[in-house]
Design a binder for these strands. Structure first.
Lengths: 209, 209
DNA sequence: CCAGTGAGTTAGCCTATGTTAGCGTCGGGC
DNA sequence: GCCCGACGCTAACATAGGCTAACTCACTGG
């Protein structure tokens, strides 16, 4: 039930629902994801759940831990995850990490984007925004093939990331699919018309993904 | 990427709606607010608006600019603001600033709290949460008097911070007022029963404010 | 083989919240 | 004194999205 033994000093594996980081841990290491997806989330006392960040292959989870004395939100695997563990013992090693500060900046900006999405966007806009973001991140990670990529989230995961219910995510995805702006079957996403999806996402002219 | 706050400090003033920082500026200075309130926000193409951070006296706006190459969201004054301008000059020593990293950490954590609030909480919970947070911050800044403090936001501002409409904020505040959990008239907040308000805010057992 | 589980799907009903519109008050500028 | 624009407030109506509950498929394990 706890994490499996590392195959080598740095390499670690996790199964779905396993914790990479527990709440209130003092952050001692960051995980660089090689394969699989993970998320950071929060549970309200009555069980409502909000996913506050998604981690894809190539992501560090979470760069924000380098800023805070304690992890206020747990990180869990959504799929099988293979990662390398980067010790935080010496903060300077992290600062020297190649690309660390740009990853941190991206992470902070994405959090703002999500805030706007959750606060002011409709279901269609939130889904379009999320799926575009994820596709773009997969593309940058070299994991997109043309207009397609893997998307190993359940509809419940998507609901918890977008602040909707799973039922409504289903309804909304159906309707988007029937309009031909996206396809999403069996953990596989295809975006026939990127421009159309962007229009649906209510992005500002300067919003990057 | 990290920048130092230079020794030189200028006193500056802003009027309501004036920009402290414009979108897409390269951040050259942070403002330490001495008096008045400000916010960071974002506008969607059709005019919907989301406030992504609030700045009270004693706050630095925005510590996050030290992480990003460009300000992706404008900061504007909500009231008259008096602040000192801290120039960002030397890229290596910002973390020497007294209290800077803890301010940054708080700012990052608050952003997560808001994300959960916008994604999963009801109107009552969001308002309770926001007002508690603001009261607590005012208290820490030495600006609360017993169970009261100034709260110079319009109901429209509150709506844009909580992802609700001004009309619904009004309705909900009325109902909370009639239940005796808070009073909010003429820019002045009173919280007769802090515990009751906390219960309404759907906070986790470990959520600080 | 069967039972159990997780995921996607659909339907019907329900309510929290949005929308629109209008009213009254206040304070500032002229 | 008189506008005029913010702002708070209310009411009537509209709807996006929540809630509950089934049913279907895999898939898994015994």
């Amino acid at each position: 039930m706890l994490s499996q033994i590392a195959a080598s000093e740095d390499l670690v594996f996790f199964r779905p629902h396993q914790f990479l980081t527990r709440e209130h841990d003092r952050p001692e290491a960051l995980y660089d994801i090689l394969e699989g997806w993970a998320c950071r989330h929060r549970l309200l006392p009555d069980g409502r759940r909000q996913i506050t960040a998604l981690y894809l292959p190539g992501d560090l989870c979470d760069p924000m831990w380098s800023l805070t004395p304690t992890c206020h939100e747990p990180v869990i695997a959504l799929t099988n995850v293979r990662a390398t563990r980067k010790s935080l013992v010496d903060p300077l090693t992290i600062d020297r990490q190649k690309g660390f500060s740009s990853r941190l900046a991206e992470s902070v900006e994405r959090q703002s984007n999500w805030l706007v999405s959750l606060g002011r966007k409709t279901a269609v806009e939130r889904l379009a925004h999320l799926l575009l973001e994820l596709f773009e991140r997969m593309r940058r990670a070299g994991l997109a093939y043309g207009q397609q990529c893997a998307l190993p989230l359940t509809q419940t995961d998507i609901a918890d990331a977008t602040g909707l219910t799973a039922v409504h995510v289903n309804r909304t995805l159906q309707s988007m699919r029937s309009k031909g702006v996206l396809e999403l079957h069996s953990k596989w996403l295809r975006i026939p018309d990127l421009g159309a999806l962007r229009d649906l996402a209510a992005l500002g002219p300067h919003d990057a993904l």
